[in-house]
Design a protein around this nucleic acid. Structure first.
Lengths: 143, 143
DNA sequence: AGCATACCCGAGTAAAATTGTCAATTATTT
DNA sequence: AAATAATTGACAATTTTACTCGGGTATGCT
């Protein structure tokens, strides 16, 4: 039961983006340097975040990425969904048409319930929450 | 975010064991046939379940495995712990001495909180709960 | 126009984890 | 002794993860 580093990177990158954007685009190069994530890997992640409508891109010099919506309206589970990390703990429940083992599996309800808890928790946290927390931590270090 | 099949198998096997044991040992061969899990793989799992003190083994003909404690006292999170599946979602939190990134990571609290929710949920379910549920499902099919 | 910046995209790849198998042994009962 | 069944360690196939690489394309600046 592990959250992939892909998902972890995506969340970190989004917080960093929000933290350093004063309305103007932030380049992946900057995020790469600050978060020590390889540029090419970040590119991969942001393609998905853009397709997930969480960020907008601005091309050309001075370009970069912007949040597509206010940070308050972006939930952590959406970030993870965008980079294609399933939040459901078992494979048979990925399909939308429900699980084949519906009736047979005794353990079905356990994983289903667990998936719901995970979703519930991660959807209760917004990018704004994380950004504020980051700002507090930065202040602490500087004082 | 996936529960490994190893953990899923372990839970299924434990339910099946409890379901078919009337106080007498159940052989892995029987569980293997009923749950369609390879015998040799089951052996691997039960070594760990035994070390985790969830089952006791009885060797020789008529032997097999028994629950080490009443099913009501066995929680699902213990089964998963035994087969060495971490319930904490990120690697840096596995060590008991705490996470190095404690202060720096903004996202630390997210994963920590998530881990706690997962643990909380899985510890609220006992092997007895799952066994009763299985019995109800069997009745439904037979009626 | 030409150049630099920065996003865009698909393919490939090495390492790690997962999911097992195989062979040989030990303990117990009949 | 023979059969049953757990015990153990080594090993192997497959899949997933976490990347890199090599090219593109759009935009702004001089």
């Amino acid at each position: 039961m592990r959250m992939s580093t892909k998902a972890q990177y995506a969340v970190r990158a989004m917080v960093n983006l929000n933290l350093h954007s004063g309305g103007s685009p932030v380049s992946l190069r900057d995020i790469s340097l600050r978060e020590s994530i390889s540029l090419t890997y970040l590119e991969q992640l942001f393609v998905k975040l853009r397709r997930g409508k969480l960020v907008k891109s601005v091309r050309g010099p001075g370009g970069g990425y912007l949040l597509a919506r206010p940070a308050r309206d972006i939930q952590v589970d959406e970030i993870i969904d965008s980079v294609e990390e399933s939040l459901v703990p078992v494979a048979c429940m990925d399909q939308k048409h429900g699980c084949l083992c519906d009736d047979q599996c005794v353990t079905h309800n356990v994983w289903h319930g667990l998936g719901e808890r995970i979703r519930q928790f991660l959807s209760s946290i917004t990018l704004a929450d994380l950004t504020e927390e980051a700002q507090r931590k930065i202040k602490q270090v500087n004082s």
